[in-house]
Amino acid sequence: MKTIRHTVLTLWALVFTVPLLWAFMSSVKTDAEIFDSPWQPPATPHFENWSRAWEQASIGRYLGNTVIVVGGSLTLTMLLGALVAYCLARYEFPGNRTIYYTLVAGMLFPVFLALVPLFFVVKQLGMLNTYHGLILVYTAYALPFTVFFLHGFFRALPGAVAEAAFIDGASHAGVFWRVMLPMARPGMVSIGIFNFLGLWNQYLLPKALNTDPDDYVITQGLAALATSRGASSDWSGLFAGLVIAILPVLIAYVFFQRQIRAGLTAGAVR
């Protein structure tokens, strides 16, 4: 019984890992070796495929674009999301509920519904094919869930510490920065991981709003390379590009796998 169980579990593990290992192996083969036999390891590993993908196929540039856009939008999302969630959770003022429900309602709508008008709004603002345009759009669409998630966190924090800080003469902003935000750290880490992956993996929004090949983010760039290839294209370079795109996430997962799994699944049950 135990052996059967482990055999089944191992088979499933192979289903998830073999395609990835195979892509890794193919990324250090020559084109001829790839066509010759998909299973054979290379005679000698050709890591120059990787540098070719990085430079000639612009994978390096796409990664750079992604780092800028994701870095900007993640910082902005966390900052604004935490502020809004904090204000709505800890202050009473007219319109509080209305604002909260309007924000949370944003999660109900599929992005496809907004796509056409969004394109023209961004166009009118002159922000098509710009970093800041993409950063602001990413942030706006990540806000509803971030606020929803952190709202619960800020609500659950004890009020006594904040009261004490106010008596000591702290300002509203000071209480938020130095007292409440540090106490909400576990929530910030979870939603931070969740947002990082969500933003890093965006495809639909950049596909519609970021159409200049020089500005492509990694998902877009890789997809464009894969779909535009003709008979003469560089297969091993494409595999290398794919592996380069996977590696950062894989490395992060090796170090933070527990936090990452907790962060992503915490998002679902809320």
């Binding site: 579990l9 499933w12 593990a13 998830f16 890992t17 073999v18 395609p19 990835l20 195979w22 892509a23 193919s26 790839i34 066509f35 998909p38 992956l197 890093w200 993996n201 965006q202 495809y203 990694i218 998902t219 877009q220 890789l222 997809a223 894969a226 297969w235 494409l238 595999f239 794919l242 795109a245 996977i246 996430v249 894989l250 997962y253 796998q257 990452i260 799994r261 992503l264």
Partner: peptide, 30 residues
């Protein structure tokens, strides 16, 4: 096992699509 099963969840659909397009390729595919 769960650590292994979870990994594809971290990949963008775009990356998964490119990977599987290679897997399905008739002549040189996995």
């Amino acid at each position: 096992y769960r650590v292994v099963y979870f990994f594809p969840q971290l990949l963008s659909v775009a990356i998964i699509a490119v990977l599987w397009q290679f897997v399905y390729t008739p002549n040189s595919g996995l």
